[in-house]
Simulated assay, not measured.
Amino acid sequence: MFDQPPLWFIAVAFLCAIGPLVFIHELGHYLVARWFGVGAEQFSIGFGREVAGWSDKRGTRWKVGWLPLGGYVKFVGDMNAASQADADAELSAGQRSVAFHNKPWWQRFLIVLAGPAANFLLAIAIFAAFFVALGRPATNPVAQVVTPGSAAEMAGIRVGDRILDVAGQGTDSLEDIARIVSIRPGEQVTIRYQRGEAIASTDALLQVEEVKDQFGQSFRIGRLGIGQERREFEKVGVVEAIPAATGYTFALTRSMIDGLWQIISGRRSTKDLGGPLKMAQIAGQQASLGLFEFIQLVALFSINLGFINLLPVPMLDGGHLVFYAAEAVRRKPVSIRAQEWAFRGGLAMLLALLVFTTFNDLASFGLFR
């Protein structure tokens, strides 16, 4: 059992994790915008008063804000950091030619999409490096061990059965099975398996197990009850590592979608929603375990940041993408007034979510006991 790292270490670890991810995200927006000839007035990591900054020869102000919970690129013609169009702005002919909102919808769509895409690409690069250096998880999904009284035994799984998919998701390795099962405690899932030459399916009611991590924190996870004698890792070349890491990143993203849907559908408690404070605690814990664990967490945070930003919520990148898709269908932009009301609603939703998750985080720290 490890002691919780000190508060200062947690703060530094969180900044070292979230700062580069925000930079990569905003750099995705910035580089694609540059490609399409869009001018950028500000590139900010963090919000609020500027702590440090400099201006480049193109007139872009690169700065760091005092509140490190995000970032933004403010393009020419933007009213604010959310890239709302400034209808009252008086732009010169030169500024109009490089204004973000004067570009075709598909260019604006790609500029916005580039931020989340950059986060997914970073995660893929990290996992690909791990796979080349250490190998990818490739434990055979064959049940060498079936725990007596487990969900697997109750469902009729026997030693030697090869698990083909669980809950409709393919399982190429035992690690895939663990990933799918762990986020479904107490759920009934369909398992398709191969026994000899025959392929069959069965339903299993996953067991619920309370486990503790290295820091004594308890979690409820699902258990199927099969295993192998040892884990296996397969070394891959650089060329093979990219598609392997892409598939791994996609699988982790799908797990996040599954978890979110479980909360929305009521199958998982909203207490499982964490916010910035919980992220900071986890960053500090993983950093205290070592560089490998911390970099792995950065990859997971990067996927999380990319996924969250793709949600169709105004103020997030996904909300902008919805507006541009609507513009493509309608052949004209969504009205400034409609966008303004949508952004207000999106901001209220995000602030409410921030307050709720902060309350959850404080409760998980034992503040209200």
Results as ranks from 00 to 15, higher is better:
100 F>R: 01
206 L>T: 03
199 I>P: 08
97 S>H: 01
268 R>D: 12
128 A>H: 02
217 Q>L: 11
121 L>W: 07
88 D>R: 12
200 A>Y: 12
166 V>I: 15
235 K>C: 04
281 Q>Y: 05
237 G>Q: 04
107 Q>W: 06
165 D>R: 12
45 I>C: 00
301 F>M: 13
256 M>S: 10
289 L>C: 06
128 A>L: 05
173 S>W: 07
256 M>G: 06
264 I>F: 15
210 E>P: 00
117 A>Y: 02
73 V>K: 00
92 S>Y: 05
220 R>I: 10
256 M>D: 03
182 S>V: 05
284 G>P: 04
238 V>H: 02
99 A>Y: 08
132 V>T: 06
46 G>H: 03
116 P>N: 08
176 D>V: 02
198 A>K: 14
146 V>S: 07
278 K>T: 14
59 G>M: 11
138 A>P: 06
120 F>G: 01
86 D>V: 11
19 G>W: 01
157 I>C: 11
204 A>T: 11
258 D>P: 00
336 I>H: 06
248 Y>A: 10
5 P>D: 12
284 G>E: 06
245 A>D: 03
75 F>Q: 02
227 G>Q: 12
12 V>K: 00
219 F>D: 10
305 L>P: 01
188 Q>T: 15
272 D>N: 13
48 G>R: 09
112 V>I: 14
327 E>K: 05
207 Q>V: 00
90 E>P: 01
139 T>Q: 12
244 A>P: 03
44 S>K: 06
346 G>C: 05
38 V>H: 03
237 G>V: 06
362 L>R: 07
178 A>W: 04
244 A>F: 03
216 G>Y: 12
129 A>H: 01
73 V>R: 00
261 W>S: 14
182 S>L: 07
339 Q>W: 02
63 K>Y: 04
233 F>R: 12
138 A>C: 09
136 R>F: 02
78 D>A: 05
362 L>G: 04
12 V>F: 12
177 I>R: 10
